[in-house]
Amino acid sequence: MSAPLLSVRDLTVQFRTDAGWLTAVEQVGFELGAQETLGIVGESGSGKSVTALSILGLHAASTTRIPTGAIAYAGQDLLKLPDRAMRRIRGGEIAMIFQDPMSSLNPVLTVADQISETLMLHQGLDRKTARNRAIGLLDMVRIADAAHRVDAYPHQLSGGMRQRVMIAIAIACRPKLLIADEPTTALDVTIQAQILDLLRELQTELGMSVILISHDLGVIAEFARRVLVMYAGRVVEAAPSRALFRQPMHPYTSGLLAAIPPLNHDVTRLSTIPGSIPDPGRRIPGCRFSPRCTEAQTECREQAPDLVSVGDDHFARCPPRLHRMRPV
């Protein structure tokens, strides 16, 4: 891999709550090369969004602290960048789209206004040029009749259309990195497929790197080359997509994959992971997954395992599995 475009190291994010500081993300690290696709998968509350928002510096400073970590992008540490410089990167070189296209769009502005705003801000275009570019962008995200639709308000568009508009805004400044946080979760399957196809085409056309966040392993398998699996704020496994789905090395990953209902054959019962995800405030000693893990040993409950190499570019945080693989 050439020098990575983005490298996140040892990122820990904490939020102030009534019950003290809550650690939402702990020691998360990954690298992303130019034009690569990284998938981040995990159940709700696992820290996917918090990780993504940290890259863009979007946490409220007053209630957040980041005790450790570095986010290297194009030779600078984004965590140390002054606000002004960060604003230039945000929406310019690094863009983001969210799950709910309705609440991320301003209901009282037309599509043209919202796309132009980004263009005028980052590229200093005048209103007329910006509007023409906006029409071009709507074409790019395959919205039919763009010249006409550009004057619509968000509520006049369907959910799929709104997500296309969000994507148009995100790619307006030709970002090098696009972060998509559950971009298709609110959409129907047929529309989800359209949006995923669109994202893939745009990625090739524009040569972007993409971080795709989802709780749906199917979406991740379809889209990402490399995958991070998060559980309770930590990365439990990181691997190239094929290795992860063929030989998952962490019991949580195996459990998740097994719990997905099959489409091609019948089963009498689904495979389950016992228990439920821990409350955000609860401190679990050792491996965060140990209370639910069927393979847990004493050592798992006592000491938090490290993320160690278990194969070619494949990392997992599970000592018992590691021992089984390479007996000591």
């Binding site: 799929g160 047929t190 196809d197 199917g218 094929r242 997905i260 489409l263």
Partner: peptide, 24 residues
């Protein structure tokens, strides 16, 4: 048939059919 074709599955080797155009 189209629905079954586009459901994402946890299989990185599966090549999904192109999405159905249009909306409901």
């Amino acid at each position: 048939q189209a629905l079954l074709d586009v459901v994402p599955r946890p299989d990185p080797d599966r090549v999904r059919k192109p999405a159905l155009a249009g909306e409901v």
